[in-house]
Amino acid sequence: MIQTIPGLSSALLLAAAVVCGLLALAVVIRRMVRTEFSRREELRRSRVRPLVLDILDGDTSFDLSRRDLAALVLLASETAGYVRGDDRSALTSWLTTQQFARTCLKKMKSPFALTRARALSRFAPMAHLAPRSIEQMLNDRDEGVRSLAAQSVGLSGSAALTPPLLRSIEGPRAIPARIVSMAVLRASPTSIAVFGDTLVDPNHRVRALAIDLAGQLNLVDGRKAIEDGLDSASSEVRAASLRSIQRLGSPLSVAALERMPLNNTPEFWSAQALVRELLVG
């Protein structure tokens, strides 16, 4: 018979009771600390809110405590997310004078994914000011951070980053194609020039996505590049070309469509149907 070590059970029970007591205490303390902390932060925020309006009006002469200034910086960066035009420029200019960009960029190099993510998220409305850094983060080792980087390209309207964004759907540190597509649409580039050479990229998936998005964005000056996709060896690229040609709806595309090789495939017949559609208008 195995004897239980004398006193072991009592010790364990006592230990359990202590742990339970500590947990319960932790819950209560956490709640009380949080309530107090939120109350103070809320007050602070209300106090600095009018100052955001001053910044928007161009009046940046105020003297604040360190904590209040930090709260104002945070509020200003959040506000920059839902305004645009002169309002956003006013905020980003002020934030730059506060070393905001520098702080964020430094944090974006942190070894912790969460820190990088939060810094990136705060910096997002101003991301167009630091395209190289954002481009690097498209290749971050954490997939969540990569996705956030893609989204910030969209949010900040950094259409110039469209090529690296499109190329990021491939490779060991890929970003889901859907997120990339959403970002490109959000950035809404207005000219095909922004797409660079992704429209002739050797990687079929990248090329197909570029052609697809050019169509969704209705980029009329991309018509030629889209039509060139019909000559591709990849069915994915050709299908994207057909879709985009349909979206652009230009009768000038008929010539390219009629150059397609004659064979009895669904692709050929949909091209024919498209020809009719474009001619009828």
Binding site: R49, P50, V52, L53, L56, D57, E78, T79, Y82, V83
Partner: peptide, 15 residues
């Protein structure tokens, strides 16, 4: 319902 947006719009209209 967003307090920050409200503050901004109010400010501009009052101006």
């Amino acid at each position: 319902d967003d307090e920050d947006v409200r503050a901004l719009v109010v400010h501009r209209l009052k101006q």
